[in-house]
Design a protein around this nucleic acid. Structure first.
Lengths: 203, 203
DNA sequence: TTCTGTGAATAGGTTCACAGCT
DNA sequence: AGCTGTGAACCTATTCACAGAA
């Protein structure tokens, strides 16, 4: 498949969110653009990479387009997700409704702090991170969320990679080294604040 | 000032993080690139937008470059930050050490849930969100973090904008409408997982 | 020789504008 | 007439490649 840009994929996600809330049977690229904060040409271009889903003069059939985008994004299947790091951030993520709604199910939580191991979090018992490889051998996961301190993130990621995890969402503020066939997204909140600082400083 | 791309600003943030950990007195664009996961030409280009900080044949003086980047990013001053939304995510953010380390000080927390108002969070008392405008009139903040449910985010943002906040870090999964002179960064975690899902589905 | 700073070349993403279907 | 699908034009970001300073 032709290489699709990250920005296109992110916009598809945004369109999907609005399509799921749309009550009309059809929607135009213009309206979808307005909702998603982009242009109608951009919407049409984004969709055109994957096919011709609209009807000229009419727009897009909402249920069909919804299904198509879910399919493109790979959301028709559900995902088992393991969480490593039972700190504050981990706690917030386990609770976060947005994940479950979209078919991402957190199936296990790991930490190495003895005080946390064994405690119950949202119905899941926090397990010792040393069990990670064995557990994943029995019950593989495609996706892991890393919410550990910066110091331990890389070593956790090495374990995850060895265990066959192919996609990692990283909240630790360090870039992670992974083989080419593993995808990492790092969310670095301090960095986001710094871009805001930059925009305040340069106006 | 000439328009600088968001990606350049983000990379400067990354370089800064590594410069602060570097022990050698000078560093080359090549080394900085290796650490930050980019190319040496990119590093030099990024820096060249702001001046000539290096010495040919030698590299960059670490303390000077650190200072320069902190200055470019506007990090030499500290920021007062208000947090709206005392849920799980808000809790994680209040605790997050990365903010304070970089000079972002959370000075107040707001919520509208009566059960949360008055409780103490990391030394701060959660205040009723209806006090927001008045409080900000007395003690202005440049930056706000919004960690409310999607439904209330826009109305909170409207209050913030009226109160003179110029930069918003948004964790609610909705695009926000703000005037052109207000900067918004939205961090949408479900969307990040969806880009991972896409990459798993299309390999 | 090493490594920066920077124009020039290339690649990539966005917008334009219009032919063509409904 | 209304709105999609898409090549072409445009604009922006990245990479190349080399002159020049240490």
């Amino acid at each position: 498949m032709r290489k699709i840009s990250d920005s296109t994929v992110r916009r598809l996600s945004v369109y999907l969110r609005f399509l799921e809330q749309t009550k009309t049977p059809t929607i135009s690229s213009r309206e979808l653009a307005r909702l998603g904060g982009t242009t109608s040409a951009q919407v049409r271009k984004d969709l055109s990479f994957f096919g011709s889903f609209g009807k000229r003069g009419l727009g897009y059939a909402v249920p069909e387009l919804t299904r198509r985008i879910r399919d493109i994004l790979g959301l028709e299947r559900g995902y088992r997700v393991v969480l490593v790091g039972a700190g504050r951030m981990g706690g917030a993520l386990v609770q976060y409704q947005g994940f479950k709604q979209r078919g991402f199910h957190i199936t296990a939580i790991y930490d190495h702090d003895a005080r946390k191991i064994g405690s119950r979090w949202n119905g899941l018992v926090v397990r010792d991170v040393t069990h990670l490889e064995n557990d994943l051998k029995k019950d593989p996961s495609d996706i892991a969320i890393v919410a550990t301190p910066a110091e331990s993130a890389q070593q956790v990621v090495d374990r995850l990679v060895r265990s066959g995890v192919k996609a990692i969402l990283n909240f630790a503020p360090v870039p992670l080294n992974v083989p080419a066939d593993v995808e990492v997204k790092t969310v670095n909140m301090a960095l986001e604040l710094e871009t805001l600082s930059y925009s305040l400083a340069n106006r």
